[in-house]
Amino acid sequence: MVARHTTAAYRTAVLLGAGSDAEDVVQEAFVKGYRKLSRYRGESSFRSWLLAIVANETRNLHRSRDRRHGLVLRAARVDPGSEIVEDDAVAAILAGERRAALVRALRLLPARDREVIVCRYFLDLSEDETVTMLGWPRGTVKSRTSRALVKLRGLLAVEEVGHG
């Protein structure tokens, strides 16, 4: 169980804002998951059930920190090696800048919008898995995803004008 789901659990904790506490969050989630294993009924995928526990633990972390600073994503550092062709280096830098712009825009979204975008597009969860993970009604997941994408596109357009 642990080996198969650690990467997804860790990624979930980081994307939902656990930051440097992500390993602690994942460890606590696995302990709680193990204790609650008898309650898992198979109505949803085991992965989404477990990630819902990770999401709850991350929310608990935010509450214990007494702040909701939300998503902590680190833009990948671009470190073009000397062998990389110049065009590849330029493409890598541009990709890094786009990733950094996306991170900045995501941080500006309200927490619930950020959570649904992370689930659907960063964790690549299905609608059903997102419903399970966030504990929201299906209609809420659909409408919030749609509205959050519109907001995100708007923020990215502003970002492009401001930095382009």
Results as ranks from 00 to 15, higher is better:
Met1Asn: 09
Ala95Trp: 03
Arg112Ala: 14
Leu152His: 11
Arg67Glu: 14
Arg67Gln: 07
Ala101Ile: 01
Glu57Gln: 13
Arg77Asn: 08
Pro80Trp: 08
Glu43Lys: 06
Glu115Gln: 11
Thr130Pro: 08
Arg63Phe: 12
Ala157Leu: 13
Tyr34Ala: 09
Arg4Cys: 01
Gly81Thr: 12
Glu129Thr: 05
Pro80Glu: 13
Glu115Val: 08
Ile53Glu: 08
Val90Trp: 02
Thr58Phe: 05
Ala13Asn: 06
Glu160Ala: 15
Leu51Trp: 03
Val150Glu: 14
Thr58Trp: 05
Ala91Cys: 00
Ser143Phe: 00
Leu152Val: 15
Ala18Asn: 08
Glu28Ser: 10
Asp124Lys: 08
Glu115Leu: 07
Glu129Cys: 04
Arg112His: 15
Arg11Tyr: 00
Val103Gln: 12
Ile93Leu: 14
Arg67Tyr: 05
Ser48Glu: 09
Arg120Met: 09
Arg112Asn: 14
Glu83Cys: 03
Ala105Lys: 02
Phe122Gly: 04
Gly96Ile: 10
Thr130Ser: 15
Asp113Pro: 03
Tyr10Ser: 01
Ala101Trp: 04
Glu159Lys: 01
Ala91Gln: 12
Ala95Val: 01
Glu129Trp: 08
Asp66Glu: 15
Val25Cys: 07
Ser82Asn: 08
Asn60Ala: 14
Gly162Ala: 00
Asp88Ile: 00
Ser143Gly: 00
Ala95Leu: 05
Thr58Gly: 07
His5Ser: 09
Arg107His: 06
Arg59Val: 15
Gly17His: 04
Gly81His: 13
Val141Cys: 06
Ala22Pro: 00
Val141Gln: 06
Ala8His: 07
Ser48Phe: 03
Arg4Phe: 03
Arg39Gln: 15
Gly19Met: 11
Leu51Asn: 05
Gly17Ile: 06
Pro137His: 11
Arg112Glu: 15
Ala8Leu: 02
Tyr34Leu: 11
Arg153Ala: 10
Val78Cys: 02
Leu50Gly: 05
Arg112Gln: 14
Tyr121Thr: 04
Tyr40Cys: 04
Arg63Trp: 14
Gly164Ala: 07
Leu156Ser: 10
Val54His: 01
Val2Gln: 09
Thr7Val: 09
His163Leu: 01
Thr12Val: 02
Arg77Ser: 12
Ser64Thr: 15
Arg63Leu: 15
Arg39Cys: 06
Glu23Ala: 12
Ala100Arg: 15
Gly81Pro: 11
Asp87Ile: 01
Arg65Pro: 07
Val158Ile: 09
Val2Cys: 00
Ala55Pro: 03
Ile117Pro: 06
Ala29Ile: 04
Leu156Thr: 10
His5Pro: 03
Arg59Met: 13
Arg107Gln: 14
Tyr40Asp: 08
Leu134Trp: 09
Leu102Asp: 07
Gly135Glu: 06
Lys142Ala: 10
Lys36Tyr: 09
Leu109Met: 05
Ala148Thr: 08
Arg114Gly: 07
Arg120Lys: 11
Ala18Asp: 07
Arg77Ile: 03
Leu61Gly: 01
Ala3Phe: 04
Ala91Arg: 12
Val150Arg: 12
Ala13Phe: 06
Ser146Val: 14
Asp21Thr: 01
Arg77Phe: 04
Ala111Val: 14
Val150Phe: 08
Pro137Gln: 11
Asp24Thr: 03
Arg147Asn: 13
